[in-house]
Amino acid sequence: MKKKPNDLILQTVTTVISFIIILFSIHLFFAGHYTPGGGFIGGLMTAAALVLLLLAYDIKTLNTILPFDYRLMTAAGLMIAVLTGAGALLFNQPFLTHAYDYFNLPLLGETSLHTAVLFDIGVYLVVIGVTMTIIQTIGESE
């Protein structure tokens, strides 16, 4: 490499935009049960934000900012999804039976909590983990 290219604009914009994207993806994720969105697309969006960071900086930088092992994240996601399903067994219900109820939470007021969201978290983590594993792996290879 003769001369390091100057990526200042890209990097600055990325810093701002990637937060917006992540926020948007979290919105997509939580809104998924009522409006379009959900774990899958939310996970893809978060991964997209990370990819943008990856493009603006490099793999090493990203690893220092976000020191995740994405393969572990995939495993954790799968684990959460399976455990959510298996939890129903404790209450003498078939596998993957979901339950929901309304709770009065300290800050949010009356909110509906649904075990399907836990399942979706599993999906979300798996999708991020998978996408990042693939892209990192291919990017690092010679």
């Binding site: 049960h33 899958f40 993957l96 929901y100 399907a116 999906v123």
Partner: peptide
Amino acid sequence: AAGGNMVNVILVDFRGFDTLFEI
């Protein structure tokens, strides 16, 4: 299922088993 997005409800609730194996 206490949901409004039917696609997502089918994916995680009605037919969540498929999703489990897709991930």
